[in-house]
Design a protein around this nucleic acid. Structure first.
Lengths: 338, 338
DNA sequence: TTATATATTGCAAACGTTTGCGGAAAGAAA
DNA sequence: TTTCTTTCCGCAAACGTTTGCAATATATAA
């Protein structure tokens, strides 16, 4: 089903017996064109149902108003919220977004950036996959001068604008909160240590302990994945070992939920036997009983800020090579599990 | 920050002292080109880090391998799952997706379709907003022969391929299930009646009642929105009226959750005092206590099927004008709330 | 050796825009 | 009347590809 012939600027020109260039200028409200012909052009454009071919436009002007987005998983609640924020500011700035998911696979991430580069996007937003350790594919974008800004899952050793939340500080405060509530044996269920977010949250956890005179007990730190089953298994392991904690700080909400489930199954009570803090403010946390204390990352704001910095970089005149990592402050959401 | 000069086919040609056309043909593995020059071309393309300009390509070939997606809200769980499915099959077919959200606003939906048409997408996937009642903007796409396929929120009176789930049947079966469990006063919390899904689910509800000898009691049917607060308010109203039901069939999970919250607040027990069935199989439903019985819509499969039908239509040779609405079978997920 | 077929490559136009430049027409100034 | 502005518009090239056709070189057949 091939597309029918589109109406072009030439068709309008022919209809009006004028040149294509005046039509083009009339459509873009160029001062050289008389108001009379402008009116005529607009009218027949309307009549013929003309749509400018933005493909041709951006070929000519080198200005594709498009930004590419690469995330690990679109359906992940956090990412879909971020994308929503990105789309919003993109829309309001006249940009259009192409979204790809890496499925946590570097190769797909590489292919995606190649595709975006081929599409001549004006900029790229990415949250890297769990399996990327080399950044060559981002370097080729950099060499091409197409701006990249990373969010949340950002590479340590790649010079670019980034936006994150204050993971370490958030973790620190959460754990400090637990300590002040007089919890002593505080466990941490973390994610893969390659991810900055996992590392930072773990760091915050440890610092809060030592700053408050509690020595870190490595047997209470369990690094697994980022999903529910990982929290479940971690809790299971601790129970089996007999080294049960009196509080848990989980790297994110799914992990917290996994632990939550196992705790209840074991007949223990929250927060009486074990307190629990998650990370993300997933809607689920406010619906379970007891409601889980967590940390709000403001994902939609993060998406907006990311898109804003990218667009600013795209539209900046001079290419000043100073990069920045902006940090959004999380909010502690105290509920019933602590 | 304007983009640096990109490497073109001409640059490769110059480097090799051959013509641009042979380079082009070599890159696309045209049989006319000798293997020797093909090898050379490939090598220098690699060396110069050449990326084909797909903008120029699609201007020339009229073949943009891109599909546009318009949904009401990206961050809505159902839609992000569908988008995930769409992206997956698009990726595997070499397509790229542009996603827009209408925010339930027709005007934005109109602007979005105009933008997609300008982008010369090969096809469009849409789930219409709650406020669209006229389909003029889709008609212009149709006239341009760019295929549209609708999913879930599909227009009644617009000829196109559509994919939906068996809403009415699903509702019918759910309510029948309640009746067989001996519930008598079954309420329905529905959405706006303009939406086909709301209408169909309500229809299934009513039919199940009459088919089983229960007369429909309009005071037990409350039409509100699709969000949590709507379910909460509906339940509140019923309690205030003193006309409390012994079971509720909600139009979707958020509404069910809202009702759930109010029921618990009122000190009533689920399912002893009131049974509850939702719609969507939102993860939340399996985490609350008691777990809520619901209906799985298989959103990711729906996304895949939608993308597949669209791509089939795009790549079909002859434009045969027969449209079809495919229906995906939902799954009933029985849990503790019934 | 000449004629014919085959294998490679190049030329140039085209896709739908935008834009620098030059030019005609008309009005203003001299 | 002539000269200078101003207003408005058209020509043609360009963006980076693809592709029909012609052209050359080489191999095969006669």
């Amino acid at each position: 089903m091939s597309s029918v012939k589109h109406i072009t600027v030439k068709d309008i020109a022919k209809e009006l017996k004028i040149s294509a260039s005046t039509v083009s200028r009339a459509l873009s409200d160029h001062p050289d064109i008389s108001t009379a012909t402008k009116r005529n052009v607009l009218n027949t454009a309307e009549k013929l149902n003309y749509f400018p071919d933005s493909i041709a436009q951006s070929l000519k002007t080198k200005n594709r108003k498009t930004i590419g987005v690469i995330v690990p998983e679109i359906k992940h609640l956090f990412f879909s919220n971020v994308i929503s924020g990105i789309e919003d500011v993109a829309y309001n700035s006249g940009y259009t977004i192409i979204v790809c998911q890496s499925n946590e696979d570097v190769n797909r991430e590489i292919i995606n950036t190649r595709a975006l580069l081929s599409q001549r996007v004006s900029g790229i937003i990415v949250s890297i996959s769990q399996t990327t350790s080399s950044y060559d594919h981002f370097f080729v974008a950099k060499k091409r001068k197409v701006p990249i800004v990373f969010f949340d899952r950002v590479p340590d050793d790649f010079e670019a604008n980034k936006v994150i939340i204050n993971d370490k500080e958030s973790a620190y405060n959460a754990v400090k909160f637990l300590i002040q509530k007089n919890y002593k044996r505080i466990a941490h269920f973390g994610g893969a240590n390659e991810l900055r977010i996992s590392k930072d949250r773990c760091l915050g956890y440890k610092e809060a302990l030592v700053d408050n005179g509690i020595e870190v007990n490595e047997s209470l730190i369990i690094h697994g994945g980022l999903h529910e089953e990982d929290g479940y298994k971690a809790m299971e392991m601790l129970l089996k070992n007999g080294s049960v904690p009196d509080a848990i700080f989980a790297v994110n909400d799914p992990v917290a939920i996994g632990a939550f489930t196992k705790i209840k199954e074991a007949g223990l009570e929250i927060p009486k036997d074990i307190a629990l803090i998650g990370f993300s403010n997933n809607p689920i946390t406010s619906l379970v009983d007891p409601k889980i204390t967590t940390i709000d990352q403001h994902p939609e704001d993060m998406g907006k800020l990311t898109a804003e910095t990218l667009i600013a970089e795209i539209e900046k005149e001079k290419t000043i090579d100073i990069t920045e990592t902006k940090v959004i402050k999380s909010s502690f959401v105290e509920r019933e599990s602590t």
